[in-house]
Simulated assay, not measured.
Amino acid sequence: MIERRPALTVLSHLVLVLGVLIVAFPIYLTFIASTHTAQDIVQAPMPLWPGSHGLENYWAALTGTGEGGGSNAPVGRMMLVSLVCALVITVGKISISLLSAFAVVYFRFPLRGLCFWAIFVTLMLPVEVRIGPTYQVVADLGLLNSYAGLTVPLIASATATFLFRQFFLTVPDELVEASRIDGAGPMRFFIDTLVPLSATSIAALFVIQFIYGWNQYLWPLLATTSEDMYPVVIGIKRMIAGGDAAVGWNLVMATAILAMLPPALVVILMQKWFVKGLVDTEK
């Protein structure tokens, strides 16, 4: 039986509260800055309480009507681009990974093991390593400043393929035999049996891949030159002007808060499925 010690309980809670404060304080400052004017923010000391310009700043950021030396592209359009890219990357990664893992596990063909390990080895080749050739191919195909150019090079996932393969290997052979007896073909078995069994894993990967797609920075930085196709992460960078130009830090901070909302909502709404997909062993 575990002995309860009040002193350790208090100490553990103090450590947790301190950790939360350390993580949350920059977010709090960002929110506070988004409710003041740019002149108030650059004053020393910066205000630590909400101002009266919050709605005005958020509306100016969403519509692109603010002032500043950097880009004034509408943040609403940027968030739409980020949302479309994140969803396409997420759905594409999960779909391709499901099908590739299904083929590797349930089909017998020459060099099957080599094909799987060729997919797995791509984990050692991140986007940064192959970004030059990838950019050349995308440019030659005329896909710059397009949704296809932003998503197709990022749509495959060796990690998800590996996870689905490991799960499919745990599916009892009796299910395969039962499906054959019932007259189900390979795709019917895949759709009616494997996909429902993989629901929690799919949910967990959806959260991870959505955040991955939403937070992409390096590839969109190269693949977009038009303000109409800026994802919100790139938009924040473009809003910060260089040199002596004035920066509308209130609008930058408002954009940063808006950029944090969709990933946070996805994590909050799918937290139960996310945790279950990572720890559930009775699948």
Rank of each mutant, 00 (worst) to 15 (best):
T9G: 14
T9P: 04
H13N: 14
V17N: 09
L18E: 09
L18P: 06
L21M: 14
I22M: 14
I27M: 14
F31I: 13
I32A: 03
T35C: 13
Q39I: 10
P50C: 09
S52C: 05
G54C: 05
N57E: 08
T63E: 04
A73I: 02
V75Y: 01
V81C: 10
L83E: 03
L83G: 12
I96Y: 00
L99C: 07
S100Y: 04
F102V: 02
V104P: 00
V105K: 03
V105C: 05
Y106V: 02
P110C: 10
L111C: 10
L114K: 06
F116H: 04
F116L: 10
I119P: 01
V121P: 00
L123V: 02
P126V: 06
P126A: 05
V129T: 09
R130V: 14
R130T: 15
P133T: 03
L141A: 15
G142W: 08
L144P: 02
N145Y: 09
T151I: 07
P153T: 08
L154G: 02
L154A: 11
A156R: 01
S157F: 04
F162M: 10
L163W: 00
Q166G: 14
F167E: 05
F167C: 12
T170L: 11
V171A: 04
P172D: 04
E174Q: 13
L175K: 05
V176N: 07
S179Y: 01
A184H: 09
P186Q: 11
R188C: 06
F190N: 08
V195G: 02
Q209L: 14
N215R: 13
Y217K: 09
L218Q: 08
P220Y: 04
L221E: 11
T225L: 09
I234L: 15
D244G: 10
W249S: 01
L251H: 00
L258H: 06
L258P: 00
A259G: 04
A264P: 05
V266T: 06
I268M: 14
L269R: 02
L278W: 05
V279R: 10
V279S: 11
D280M: 09
